[in-house]
Write a protein that binds this DNA or RNA. Structure first.
Lengths: 224, 224
DNA sequence: CTTAAAATACCACAAACGTGCGATTTCTGT
DNA sequence: ACAGAAATCGCACGTTTGTGGTATTTTAAG
């Protein structure tokens, strides 16, 4: 990790390019005003919807940060994130939300948003969040963070040890990838019979009797 | 989500039970001193290692929060989390770390920790973090949060639509669970031949030629 | 009403699979 | 040096799979 200059260090380096997507024209004006008045931030793109951004944004330079409202639009908000991420893989998307819409924000984070901020946050908070996300951070509510972590931890299920040997793991790997016994044998230069034996042992260790059972177990229980 | 009383509301309700696991006796004393001096917090358990906690902790009441050092021990730190989580499924584990050990903290979070705090944090920060985690929060560094989010988002891969019909999805589901064609047929009251046909079509839509290939694709690409 | 898509069903056959049994040859640790 | 685990190879046999067909009935959409 590299040390970044402190926030107080506001030399005229190249400013952070920000796009703003917010359906409420009033609030959009307020925000863009805040951004362009802040040294080190520019806002070349200000749109009322994702579609607008998609069509008008083609000619604009790639943004580093997108402030995106997911309040009303429904389809536009969440799915817009994915589209933006496709266009600009490195863009940092900050979600704008009025209230503490846990579910929506959660979906947004899953879709690739880097963080979020409440619309009624004071100006300096907003500017801070922008700098934070550019610096690699993830501004978000602690409760949402907790929920993310929960699901995150749940996805690392108990790694039961079935006592598979290295060779068995290797062969199981190939099995999982869809190869036949013969193909596996050819791949690792073994006799068909040897592979057969190994798979036999794998099945008994995994307590399965079919390929599909084995493959399922591998994925479900994070074996290998 | 239930509303909790504000932090300012310090009535003599039942205090938060905290366990402390830290190999440095000096720092352990400091911390436990801080905790017992703080109204609303108690520290009935203070141990120098996870093993110690495992053996001595049996007779103690279940903790709500565990402050756990993952600095030196190696095996004890991370794997201890899982053990504690098994013992006390609802316990909140806060990681203690000296420096910004990203990788270790990250592992800890994966293992089920709820957050972490730096050892050199001021006392009020520590107390705050404890209250925060009990209230359902997840005190953690913004950069770690970001990393968690990244991996989190990566786990939701593009859901390609292979144009499977409902029936096909149903059968694929059973296929994935390890049933044979005949078993599937029996399960949903179809002829073996019909199931055969469906699977044939599934394979062609999924561009696979084996069960394992199909099952792998289902898990890898989040089909179904 | 007509047409296409989906679901149902059947057959045959080669290929692949699962499993019983036995066997020899490295490794690895005490 | 020796025991036990792991890895290697072999065979036989019944079961299941994958694939090439064909064909009827429902269902959904125009």
């Amino acid at each position: 990790m590299k040390e970044k200059p402190m926030a107080e260090d506001r030399r005229p380096v190249k400013p952070i390019t920000i796009w703003l997507i917010e359906d409420n024209a009033r609030y959009r004006k307020t925000l863009s005003g805040l951004i362009i008045q802040t040294p080190g931030l520019t806002c070349p793109g200000s749109f009322g919807s994702c579609e607008e951004a998609f069509s008008s944004g083609k000619s604009l330079p790639a943004p580093e940060v997108i402030l995106l409202d997911i309040g009303l639009p429904g389809i536009n908000g969440i799915s817009g994130i994915e589209t933006f991420k496709t266009w600009f893989p490195d863009v940092n998307i900050l979600i704008l939300t009025v209230y503490d819409d846990h579910d929506r924000v959660f979906e947004a984070l899953c879709a690739g948003a880097s963080g979020y901020l409440l619309k009624d946050a004071p100006p300096e908070k907003i500017v801070d969040a922008i700098h934070e996300v550019v610096a690699g951070g993830a501004p978000m509510n602690i409760r949402i963070a907790h929920r993310v972590l929960e699901i995150f931890a749940r996805m690392k299920p108990r790694k039961t040890d079935y006592g598979l040997t290295d060779r068995e793991k290797e062969i199981l790997q190939l099995l999982v990838s869809g190869l036949t016994k013969q193909e596996i044998a050819d791949r690792i230069f073994l006799s068909f019979h040897t592979v057969n034996t190994h798979i036999k042992n794998i099945y008994s260790k995994l307590h399965v009797t079919t390929r599909s059972g084995a493959v399922s177990k591998v994925y479900r229980e994070n074996i290998l």
